[in-house]
Design a protein around this nucleic acid. Structure first.
Length: 822
RNA sequence: GCCGGGGUGGCGGAAUUGGCAGACGCCCGGGACUUAAAAUCCCGUGAGAUUUUAUCUCGUACCGGUUCGACCCCGGUCCCCGGCACCA
């Protein structure tokens, strides 16, 4: 008897797929396309369980769609620029390129061991000059369109690594690399104007039905659009007007002070030459040294200093003191805020601290709140009070009215603010795409000529981990000539944030080997959008918003045909063990390599898909893996045992016995279930459980005296077909064993007969007052009344009712009869 | 604090959305096969009670409501996970 020799089986089929390029895809207008994409990995050199889960999910979808008749694009590549390569260079003296290519080679082997149906001819690596050449080209198109600009701004700065950090590289206020507390430093950096797209990025979300709500809400909050008004306040004794942004213009009568950010340039004008100058400067100096940790630790505990100046409340005409405080952010609104302590908790805290008057102007009409003795700010809606002629007006109406009024008076306007900031894209790092910009003393910043791309990363650099970008140490890179005037000029030494590389790789996959263009318009038109995108929820905001921004900008440039890149999004849950995230420090890491060596890739894939639905966390269980392995052995033995019967069977089957009918029912039910679960709902766990039920049913069936060889053949062959997207190697092997010479991947997805799913007899439930009392087999297809009559006429039912009076009978055909008694 | 998502057997999870709670698998227990073990196969497996081949009661975090009927809908409470966090 043959046994399940997964090692040889998997190696055999992987070799065959590779040699025959089984998964190669070309554009074919005669077929409906389906683009399934998994987020490409950073090539750390080691695949982890999160990858296995991500790619197993994608592979089931890809293989299923292929069998269902679609022209499937299923590519893979590497997001291969980034910090770890540079750290390896600093630590071990290995060149980043060499280190990265070594890792990619390792990961290529590991990915192939999983038996994934990728078209490897489309593989990309973002650190390859053939890729980053086009990254630079796109940058230049953005620059020409006015989407890229350079600006001096305060940025995150790690004093120990002496480098800029991205927000996402600051973990709890500390550098992710060395743990030092991150400070602020003003530096000239490159930005993308993502804020120009804020409205579109936000509004499109409403039409994106294929995305999880959770992700859409996260993006919505991140963009943070808030609608309000700008209002001008005159500054007393100075010929100046300060504009504030507020979402609560209805509370303007309650404005008893004004607060301004320490970094605000107008602060200087307020204090110059006054007695307050020294104290205010000292406060600003102190605030500028505060890092994120110190700042967030003082939330609720307000600090500030009086500037000696007053503004005039345009509605009450009263003088209100102006304070400098660090709870006002320079980067949001106008950097100046009207203080309404009665209705904003931060202002309330500030007023308490500095003993400023609290004037309530909205009465929520809540008996539990004494508006004249507020214990906290009251943000609730209500009726205006202490607001002159507006008293008695509903505050929501007042927002409209007062906004109109300030516009009429010419002292303000309706205004929208976003939490989203422009995207800081330059990095003072080596291992990234060089920004293809040149600084000329005469012409300013100019892009490199497109025919000179790529601007190649220099290799004559030193990695010290200190000072500026290692590229600065290159003797060949920096000096160049101005593309405009031809005079000596200097290249930008910063590189691009790696999030840029991953913002368009899905377009490059459509035309990965193109040496003339980033991608051909026609090919992108055929393949895009991505029909199904799959990846970790940790990318919900950054990557998924940047990619959307890129797609929109490229759409506006006329380079692509759609505004949004990803039609459907599946965010898979984490793989955990013993209730905790797998991590080296806890020591609960399960290595995919080990599992594959011990049980094979099919078992690993099957378990990971069976143990939980894809969006949910997956608790790794070694015993569960054993179970999946046992199941595959069970299937393999079944096929082995029935091989001769099946090979000797004829064509279409006929239902002869009730056992035949049961097996045909289970077969069709399983096909239906797997079709729905693998094709739409992506509940692979229940798809697999249904396949297990089919296997159990076949095991039962084959013990019968009269076995129907044709039916068995149909059952077993369809079993192999529906199982093949999950565990492709073993299925190819069994398919071949049954005498087929084609790959099961080229088979059509089986269809099911609704008629086989109609049972002659069905089990219905008899309830008394909603409680289950009895189960009963009745003929299928009875009407509501027939069923009721049948049940009510039974002696058993009469016994169940006993002495009680029947009030009502609810009869649901095919389900139950509920008798309400008293 | 605000915004999401969840709480179902010893465990992972089903229940296709108001109609048999616990599919499928794991663990565990019993049996068959075996000299024995492994593997395999079969049976049992939410809790409790009783007069134990059966019957009854309870049971989907907790309290209440709607309904003939609620894991599912509504109101309130507690707990866990994720995101954002002085954004005016």
């Amino acid at each position: 008897m043959a046994y399940y020799d997964f090692k040889n089986i998997e190696a055999k089929w992987q070799k065959k797929w590779e040699e025959e390029k089984s998964f190669k895809t070309v554009e074919d207008e005669s077929k409906e396309k389906y683009y399934v994409l998994e987020m490409f990995p950073y090539p750390s050199g080691k695949l982890h369980m999160g990858h296995v889960r991500n790619y197993s999910i994608g592979d089931v979808v890809a293989r299923y769609k292929h069998m269902a008749g679609f022209n499937v694009l299923h590519p893979m590549g590497y997001d291969s620029f980034g910090l770890p390569a540079e750290n390896a260079a600093i630590k071990n003296g290995v060149e980043p390129a060499k280190w990265t290519w070594g890792n990619i080679a390792e990961m290529n082997v590991q990915l192939r061991r999983l038996g994934l149906s990728y078209d490897w001819d489309r593989e990309v690596a973002t650190s390859h000059p053939e890729y980053y050449k086009w990254m630079q080209w796109i940058f230049i198109q953005f620059y020409k369109k006015g989407l890229a600009y350079k600006k001096e701004n305060p940025v995150n700065w790690c004093p120990s690594c002496a480098t800029v950090l991205a927000n996402e590289q600051v973990v709890d206020g500390c550098c992710e690399r060395c743990g030092s507390v991150v400070g602020k430093k003003s530096l000239s950096q490159w930005y993308f104007k993502i804020t120009d797209y804020a409205d579109r990025l936000l509004d499109n979300l409403d039409t994106m039905d294929g995305w999880p709500n959770k992700v859409k809400i996260m993006q919505k909050n991140w963009i943070g659009r808030s609608t309000g008004a700008e209002v001008d306040f005159k500054v007393k004794d100075l010929d100046k007007v300060f504009t504030v942004f507020t979402t609560r213009v209805d509370t303007i009568f309650g404005t008893t002070f004004m607060v301004i950010a320490p970094e605000h340039p107008e602060v200087e004008n307020l204090i110059k030459g006054t007695e307050y100058e020294e104290a205010v400067r000292a406060y600003i100096e102190e605030a500028s040294h505060k890092n994120d940790i110190e700042r967030t630790s003082t939330v609720g505990e307000k600090t500030g200093v009086f500037t000696g100046r007053y503004a005039i409340n345009p509605f009450t005409e009263k003088e209100i003191p102006i304070y400098v405080t660090d709870y006002v952010l320079m980067g949001y609104g106008t950097g100046i805020v009207m203080g309404v302590p009665g209705h904003d908790q931060r202002d309330f805290d500030f007023a308490k601290k500095f003993d400023l008057p609290i004037v309530p102007v909205v009465d929520p009409g809540d008996p539990e709140i004494d508006v004249n003795n507020l214990q906290a700010a009251c943000a609730a809606e209500g009726t205006l009070i202490n607001s002159g002629e507006y008293n008695g007006m509903n505050n929501k109406v007042a927002i409209e009215k007062l906004t109109e009024l300030v516009e009429e008076k010419g002292i303000g306007k309706k205004s929208i603010n976003y939490r989203l900031r422009d995207w800081l894209i330059s990095r003072q790092r080596y291992w990234g795409t060089p920004i293809p910009m040149i600084y000329c003393e005469h012409c300013g910043w100019v892009p490199e000529k497109e025919e000179n791309l790529p601007v190649i990363l220099p290799t004559d650099v030193e990695f010290t981990g200190k000072g500026e970008s290692p590229i600065a140490t290159s003797k060949t890179f920096v000096d160049t000539v101005c593309p405009v005037c031809g005079q000596p000029a200097k290249r930008e030494i910063d590189t691009m944030d790696t999030f840029l590389d991953s913002s368009w790789y899905f377009l490059r996959y459509c035309d990965a080997r193109n040496t003339e263009e980033a991608f051909s318009f026609e090919k992108v038109k055929y393949w895009m959008n991505v029909d199904q995108y799959i990846g970790g929820v940790e990318h919900a905001i950054l990557h998924l918003m940047y990619a959307r921004f890129f797609q929109m900008a490229l759409y506006d440039l006329g380079l692509v045909t759609t505004e949004e890149p990803f039609k459907n999004l599946l965010t898979q849950g984490m793989v955990i063990k013993d209730g905790k995230k797998m991590s080296k420090s806890i020591g609960n890491v399960v290595s995919p390599d080990e599992i594959i060596s011990k049980y094979g890739a099919d078992t690993a894939r099957l378990f990971i898909l069976f143990a939980a639905p894809p969006e949910r966390e997956l608790d790794w269980s070694d015993a569960g893996v054993e179970g999946s392995y046992r199941f595959l052995n069970r299937v393999f033995r079944l096929v082995d045992e029935l091989e001769d019967v099946i090979k000797g069977a004829g064509g279409a089957y006929e239902i002869k016995t009730s056992a035949d009918k049961d097996l045909a029912y289970q077969l069709n039910a399983t096909i239906k279930k797997v079709t729905e679960d693998a094709g739409g709902r992506f509940n692979f766990n229940t798809a697999i459980s249904s396949i297990m039920e089919l296997v159990n049913e076949i095991y039962r069936y084959k013990e019968n005296k009269d076995i129907n060889a044709e039916l068995l053949k149909a059952a077993v062959e369809d079993l192999i077909r529906v199982l093949s997207p999950f565990t492709p190697h073993i299925c190819e092997e069994m398919w071949e064993k049954l005498g087929h010479t084609n790959s099961v991947y080229t088979e059509s997805w089986p269809t099911y007969e609704e008629s086989a799913l109609v049972k002659d007899e069905i089990e219905i439930v008899i309830q008394i007052n909603g409680k289950l009392k009895e189960k009963l087999n009745v003929a299928n297809g009875l009407t509501k009344d027939e069923l009721e009559k049948l049940v009510m006429d039974r002696d058993n039912t009469k016994q169940l009712i006993g002495e009680k009076t029947v009030v009502k009978v609810i009869s649901v055909p095919g389900k139950l009869v509920n008798i309400v008694v008293k």
